[in-house]
């Protein structure tokens, strides 16, 4: 399905979505955090879209905001969409987990929690996966400093 058609379907679900195709090969849709789970569920369950394969889940620090990027694909139609979600709360960022929609998210969300400190609501087992449980800070954030271990040019 072409990007325009996908956009047409997704647009009808909510009026708070922002679409963009600039600087990217995929259709990007920015979703408000509180609507994320609902939109994702619809993306997977709508028969014409059927985004059943979450192939990449990236945490990102936009300086002011923290965000998560979901790359989705339909294994049946082979069309893609990129869902982006942001949260401005850097102290205690919270985003809904999508691990009940795509099971692969369970591990990828743990990774994002480990490196960005984003807490996923309703995640079954949110723990520090790579780092030790007593690690301070979230290393992939832009403001993380570790004078001993980081080599900065």
């Amino acid at each position: 399905m072409e990007n325009q058609e996908i956009q047409k379907i997704v647009e009808s679900w909510s009026d708070k979505l922002e679409f963009s195709e600039e600087g990217s090969e995929f259709l990007n849709v920015t979703v408000p955090a509180e609507e994320l789970h609902e939109i994702c569920l619809k993306l997977k369950d709508t028969p014409e879209l059927k985004f059943d394969y979450l192939f990449c889940l990236t945490g990102i620090d936009w300086g002011e905001e923290l965000g998560v990027i979901y790359h989705l694909e339909s294994t049946e139609y082979r069309h893609n969409i990129v869902v982006k979600v942001k949260t401005a709360d850097r102290e205690n960022p919270k985003i809904d987990s999508v691990n009940d929609i795509w099971r692969t998210a369970e591990f990828h969300e743990m990774e994002v929690f480990d490196f960005f400190g984003i807490r996923f609501n309703n995640h079954p087992n949110l723990k520090r996966l790579f780092l030790t449980p007593d690690w301070e800070g979230y290393p992939l954030r832009k403001d993380y400093v570790d004078e001993e271990n980081m080599v900065i040019k």
Partner: peptide
């Protein structure tokens, strides 16, 4: 600005 490797092993491990 941000580079992410979606590694096959990590997703396979989750199952």
């Amino acid at each position: 600005y941000r580079l992410k490797f979606r590694s096959p092993g990590f997703s396979n491990l989750s199952v």
